[in-house]
Nucleic acid binder design. Structure first.
Length: 122
DNA sequence: GCGGTGACGGTCG
DNA sequence: CCGACCGCCACCG
């Protein structure tokens, strides 16, 4: 096989919408376990984007409605949902998280309890 | 090629 | 505690 198919997307079953870095970001979002949440900045750091957490927000906004990517598990550094409440996805995100066992207190999630701690080495 | 924009984050008052 | 501001940088017109 001279040419091995370069894997274009790391995210399974997801077609790229615009950028090629989006699937890369999505692949990290897909690693967040059920019942846990990660912050935009956390995903940005894991994806090698440095502190450009905004790009993570961009990538999630570009997701199609019926995506396998668990976008609901990404919240802001305050443990809150970054979407405006007028956006229907606000309630959707909250409902999805609560159905996973994530508890909201005053519109916020306790990141100490539900925050995802990826591969922290001892 | 340039300028405005944004599902953010950290700092300041 | 909370709102306002600035910094960051890829994407879009």
């Amino acid at each position: 096989m001279s040419k091995r198919a370069h894997n274009r997307d790391s995210a399974p079953g997801v077609a790229p919408r615009r950028s090629k870095v989006y699937p890369h970001i999505w692949s990290f979002v897909a690693r967040i376990p059920r019942g846990r949440v990660a912050t935009y900045g956390q995903i940005a750091a894991l994806a090698g984007l440095g502190r450009n957490a905004r790009q993570v927000g961009y990538a999630l906004h570009a997701l199609p409605e019926n995506t396998p990517v668990p976008w609901q598990r990404v919240v802001n550094a305050s443990g809150g949902i970054s979407l405006p409440q007028e956006d229907g996805r606000y309630d959707l995100q909250r409902s999805l998280l609560e159905s996973e066992g994530v508890v909201f207190a005053h519109a916020r999630i306790d990141l100490g309890r539900f925050g995802w701690k990826p591969r922290s080495r001892p």
